[in-house]
Design a protein around this nucleic acid. Structure first.
Lengths: 243, 243
DNA sequence: CGGTAGATTGAATAGTATCAAAATCAGTGG
DNA sequence: CCACTGATTTTGATACTATTCAATCTACCG
């Protein structure tokens, strides 16, 4: 039901967006003028792997899953994009296709820019270009890190690390521990770590027994972060679970 | 033996460098003025993981290995950088540290820019900024692809793919087949694919028996690309090895 | 209250890692 | 030219992690 968006409220919102950091209010205004804001529902697809890369997105409230399908049909869950993060960065540069699929998890608003608009903005505002590069460098580093993990670590460590990373990104304190505030199935975790839902299930079962986590249907609560970090770092630190 | 570098000869060299594509001769001249060129020997270290990221490099002839060491001491060989490619892109943007180590494989010249110089060039020339982004996007895609492979494919496929990728990057036709023109040990291949040198050795032995490759000490010659592609794609295409 | 997506569990198996030992090769210096 | 040295590679035996497949169970939704 597209409620109208005032310049002011959005200028406010953009203040927290890394991509627009350091821009003047006037510049931010220009960025907003060229943008489009729309509300998306859970399950909606922002873009599909293989589709023409025409648009760059920044979720305002919505959260988005980024997945890639390999030729053999195996799906991998690459990451979750939260409010203020950039999505579809390959657009605005090349006449290319999206290498991944972006699906909305949480309803909310999403800002977007066309290829050409973003191109023009980038040329006009070096600071914007710099921010973009900064974000890309961060992505590259993150991906390198992940390759390293996939190449050298065992499944248990990888799953532990992934849970910790997600907790950092979407953790919410509760009385029972830190809730991973994101509907995350065993399958999802498996796709993020390069394993199977069976193995993830077994791991979570073991961790539950060790009172490190508490799990439910698409739900994880971290009770003993320290112990999970120990697993992630492969310290032979088991059994020290008190505190 | 630092032989003097004329503007003209280097302007010529920069013509093939993706990072400087589309710049005018004048702009290229400015880029060169701000650069430093030096000759490096095999084994030299351009920068070390953890060191302050102060410089961006573009090899002119030299080739460079990029490796990352994980906290547990496991090393991963991320990639080889050839002439004209960019290296150390995280510099020129942030006051950060290199996340990887860059070691020279082949003697040759290397061009470099200080953090500040590149920063200024990027601000002055939107086209340069655009090129940088384009290269970063390519890196991101490549890394995503690699994560996908590491997450979903078996060792044999990964090794096959890696060999094919390297062949594409550094293959040289010979009478015996396509020589992988790069000193590459079993250990190196293992580090690129997230496995052990033992497994790589066994795979190469099997492929040799199938007359797909011919191997020696730090040497690989691809005799039957088609068969290796079949392995990489996990086609049950074995035994069709003739022609 | 039944239907269904999600999760658990067990048993069998495959794929790789690990470790130890021996073989091979490229240099190097006698 | 040959023996020596060290790096690289091969090979075998064994252990173990993680996958696969099948069956069952559970929670939630309409």
């Amino acid at each position: 039901m597209e409620r109208p968006v005032t310049r002011q409220s959005d200028a406010e919102l953009l203040r927290g967006v890394a991509l627009f950091e350091g821009l003047t209010d006037a510049q931010r205004g220009e960025v907003i003028d060229r943008s489009r804001v729309r509300r998306v529902k859970a399950g909606a697809v922002l873009f599909r792997q293989g589709g023409a890369a025409t648009t760059l997105f920044v979720p305002l409230e919505a959260r988005v899953r980024v997945t890639e399908l390999d030729p053999t049909g195996h799906e991998v869950l690459l990451r979750f994009i939260g409010p203020g993060q950039m999505l579809g960065g390959m657009a605005g540069l090349e006449r290319a296709t999206y290498p991944v699929t972006a699906t909305v998890v949480d309803e909310g608003r999403v800002m977007s820019w066309s290829n050409e608009a973003m191109q023009r903005l980038l040329e006009r505002h070096p600071r914007l270009a710099r921010n973009t590069m900064r974000l890309m460098v961060a992505r590259i580093r993150e991906l390198q890190q992940r390759c390293l993990e996939l190449a050298t670590q065992h499944v248990e460590q990888r799953v532990a690390r992934t849970v910790l990373r997600l907790i950092r990104q979407a953790g919410r304190r509760t009385d029972r521990g830190i809730l991973l505030d994101l509907p995350l199935s065993r399958q999802d975790l498996a796709e993020m770590t390069g394993t199977t839902l069976f193995t993830v299930s077994r791991l979570l079962a073991r961790w539950t027994q060790q009172e490190i986590v508490e799990v439910g249907r698409r739900r994880v609560v971290l009770r003993n972060p320290h112990a999970l970090v120990a697993i992630a770092d492969d310290l032979p630190d088991r059994e020290a679970a008190s505190g």
